[in-house]
Amino acid sequence: MRPAEPAASLTTPPTRRPRGRRRIARRATPYLLIAPTIATLLLVLGYPLFDMVVLSFQDMTRKELFAGTSPPWAGVDQYRVVLSDHFFWVVVARTVAFAVVCAALTMLCGLGFALLLREVSPWVRGVMIGVLVAVWAMPFMVAASVFRWLSDADYGVINWLLGRFTGSDFQGHNWFANPWEGFAVIVAVVVWGAIPFVAITLHAALTQVPAELEEAARVDGARGVTLFRHVTFPMIRPLFVVVAALSTIWDFGAFSQIWLMRGGQPERDYYLLGVYSFIESFAVNRYSAGAAIAVVTVLLLLVGSAVYLRQILRTGEIE
């Protein structure tokens, strides 16, 4: 991690005091520089977020969308309907479980890869990093298409392998008939695509761990798991927390993979919050209900964001 960089070197006043106008110009410079970014973000992020909240207190349907009239106010009706619906809470629980399982598996495999990368010969490391980077760059939709082919009922490799190793016949087994199995495939594609980012980041962190530290612990008799838990891991922990928080946040917003795996028409058993909000808005045309679900999603995500931001503040990265 980079050390905190004092940003002052260019702003310390030179020996001769600048005249008043110059000083104002100097003061204004950073604000002029960030103005275009602020303006753009207000337009493409600030306003839509604000509008989303407003929308969730209204009742917008297809009629208002096409007429361009402003939708009637609905107060907290949308929230009352959404939050009192049992199915909504099922989806919330499912989304949380999905994000946690995906993130946990990703972190575990990513950490495994990162540790392996330290142990192997240079040429093997080259091969592994090449593969990781190639997988990293794969578009979600490409990955989802490939996994759909792998899990094909009749000609998929997965069914064939399972048949081979369990001895029973998996030919024609449909992975998406049972949502648990369907989600297993979806988790697999999400985790597969997410491992490289985690592995490469943690690998970079591990290379910063001083060799002497582990050597010293080894002399003191620390081995294997003990060595890792008490010496190595504490060194990479800040980055580990950041990456884990990010992974959870991203998996929480999963949409495309499910969308593609279910051919653009996910069954209710496959709804996560993102899918639910999307379908309420664009399939059922209840935009306000969709917005209310999206607002709840963002609020739930604040927990993960708080962990992420706190850890980054702690590392002193932004000083």
Binding site: P30, L45, P48, M52, F252, G253, L309
Partner: peptide
């Protein structure tokens, strides 16, 4: 400055799927 950085980091945790509806309307 610090507030700006926090905002830049925080907005990256907002899932795109949550923005679809208002962005579409905008």
């Amino acid at each position: 400055r610090r507030a700006l950085i926090l905002v830049l980091l925080a907005v990256q945790t907002i899932p795109l799927i949550a923005l679809v509806i208002p962005v579409y309307l905008l």
